[in-house]
Amino acid sequence: MTPALAQEYIKRRMHELGFGDNYHIRLKHFIIRQGETRVEKAYNSFYILVEEPARLQIKSQNGFFELANTNANEMQYEHHGKITIRHTGGAIARVRFIQVIPYK
C-alpha cells in the first residue's frame, strides 16, 4: 500500500467505523533487529501498513502479514489490538506504519 492510498483508505475506513473526521494520525517507523520481537499495543488505535516489509512477520487478531509466507491466501494491512512484529532472520528490517487514533 502506498502512503497516498493509505490516506484515502484511512479516510473512508474511519467513516465506515463511524468516527467521521475525528482522528489523529501518527507516523511510525520501526527498526527491528535480528531475533527481536516487538509488541505494540493498539487497543485504541489502528496500524495501517504503508509498505510491504521484508524479513518481518506482523501478527494481530485481524490477520497476518509476512511476505515469505507461502501458506496464506491473504495478507492483512490493517492491524488492531495487540500487534506482534517478529524478525524472521537476515539483515535489520524496517517497517513503516500510519497509526490512526480515533477520538470521540
Binding site: 465506515e16 467505523l17 463511524g18 487478531q61 485481524n62 488492531h80 489490538g81
Partner: peptide, 14 residues
C-alpha cells in the same frame, strides 16, 4: 479462528 465485522473495530470473535 478470528471473525470480524467491517463496521466494528477489531474482531468480535477470536
Amino acid at each position: 479462528l478470528s471473525l470480524s465485522s467491517n463496521q466494528r473495530e477489531g474482531v468480535f470473535y477470536f
